[in-house]
Amino acid sequence: MKRYVLGEFGEPEDCVEALRKLHEAGVQGLDAYSPYPLHGSDEALELPRSKVPLVALTGGVFGALGGYVMQAWMNGVDFAINVGNRPPHGFWTNIPITFESGVLLSVLSIFFSAIFYFFALPRPYHPVFESEQFRTASLDAFWVSIETEEEEPVADLEEKLRSTGARRVHTVVESA
């Protein structure tokens, strides 16, 4: 059964500082919850760079290529129409659609990868919701959570959280 040791902080700087100290002390399974993006939390946890730009670039490149190939094939090969004797395959007139399909696929890949991969939605339940106090994470407080499988380190982790200045410490156990 997973256990989540939660600590509440009143100020964003204290929360980031606690994250940094715990990460330096080698604590595993750290996470942060905050009502708004916390500057410095990624650096404190030494998280790897976000993969979102890479997803956006890949989507954009495929969208642009797909858009161009679609037009080149349809106008130039599959159903060539002579309009005022212009070349059926006009490179420059294909560019606007190429650009737009590139943007479209780039945005859609960010959106869907964010929802289904990065946020792992749909996810109607998470054990930390068991804690009544945890509601302040979406109001005015900053929470650090430490995930652990075993029971023994819980007391130690709670103590560590208190020593970094958490004003409330609380542990939730994943219900079976």
Binding site: G84, G90, W92, T93, I95
Partner: peptide, 12 residues
């Protein structure tokens, strides 16, 4: 630059 070029190119 493209808007200027493409419209002139297509209009010919």
């Amino acid at each position: 630059a493209f808007s200027q070029y493409m419209l002139i190119w297509a209009g010919n």
